[in-house]
């Protein structure tokens, strides 16, 4: 679905991505994981064209993310960020249906789609007329997810979608996200710094460090056959807080 070939990206003197080559397979959930500043968010933003690579290419469904095709391709992707990125002047309903209305969808097409999404994300129906400032953090992330899914995109990109939520809500939403991913079968790319979350939601884990990909595989691969000592260190650091780990 997404193919990155020898992608470089720098911010001034800092190298964010240092020659990344990676393929994201259709219908799979991939979790990008690694310490802060490892380049995982940069990689995600390159996938949706918010950033352009200094060198190398990014392709979506075999098509290059060029300026001319960018808008069309973005409508085939959904994007959710940490704080939701909801528009505060629009109600939950208006946020979710914004793009559909902009593209001229009829009410008869919008209403059932919205109803499906509300059911899928367990969003309280009476919350649709509220503004983001009147909803809880968890509810806002549900609205952001609905908005990302409204046009029924082929790919879903999530940048620390649960990062700002408290642990209870986070746990609940992790369960729900897993169900949603399973139900929809979309290509999902998820950025997280939490190994447990990555392992719980992702089919494949991509561990990054300083702009490079260290290892790609499932959690068992990372644990049993670490590509370099950093993999072990990373896993140990995360496990120290979870003596009875999820695995």
């Amino acid at each position: 679905m997404f193919v990155l070939d020898q992608v470089f990206k720098r911010y001034g003197q800092t190298t964010a991505l240092d020659g990344v080559t990676l393929t994201f397979e259709r219908g799979r959930t991939t979790a990008l994981i690694g310490p802060s500043g490892c380049g995982k968010s940069t990689l995600l933003r390159l996938l949706i064209g918010l950033l352009t690579p200094d060198a190398g290419s990014v392709r979506f469904d075999a098509e290059s993310l060029a300026v001319a095709s960018l808008r069309r391709l973005r409508q085939r992707m959904g994007y959710v960020i940490q704080q939701g990125g909801l528009f505060p002047h629009l109600t939950a309903r208006q946020n979710v249906t914004l793009m559909a209305r902009h593209l001229g969808w009829s009410q008869a097409r919008i209403a059932p789609r919205l109803a499906d999404l509300v059911a899928l994300t367990h969003f309280p129906a009476d919350g649709l007329e509220r503004y983001p400032s009147e909803l809880s953090g968890g509810q806002n992330q549900r609205v952001a997810l609905m908005r990302a899914l409204m046009l029924d995109p082929e790919a879903l990109l999530l940048d620390e979608p649960l990062g700002a939520l408290d642990p209870m809500i986070r746990y609940e939403l992790q369960e729900e996200l897993k169900q949603v991913f399973a139900t929809l079968g979309k290509t999902v790319v998820l950025v997280t710094h939490d190994l447990a979350e990555a392992a719980f939601l992702g089919h494949t884990l991509v561990l990054m460090r300083a702009g490079r990909i260290v290892q790609v595989g499932c959690l068992a691969d990372l644990m049993t056959a670490p590509a370099e000592p950093f993999v072990e260190q990373f896993i140990r650091a995360q496990r120290s807080h979870l003596p009875e780990a999820v695995f």
């Binding site: 918010l50 992707m77 994007y79 990125g85 528009f87 505060p88 002047h89």
Partner: peptide
């Protein structure tokens, strides 16, 4: 982040101005 969210949705620059930036 709001401007990027509008871009990420696939809104054109004009639509972003009219639907998001001016109302805000």
């Amino acid at each position: 982040t709001l401007r990027e969210s509008a871009d990420a949705l696939g809104l054109s620059a004009g639509a972003r101005l009219w639907r998001i930036e001016l109302p805000l």
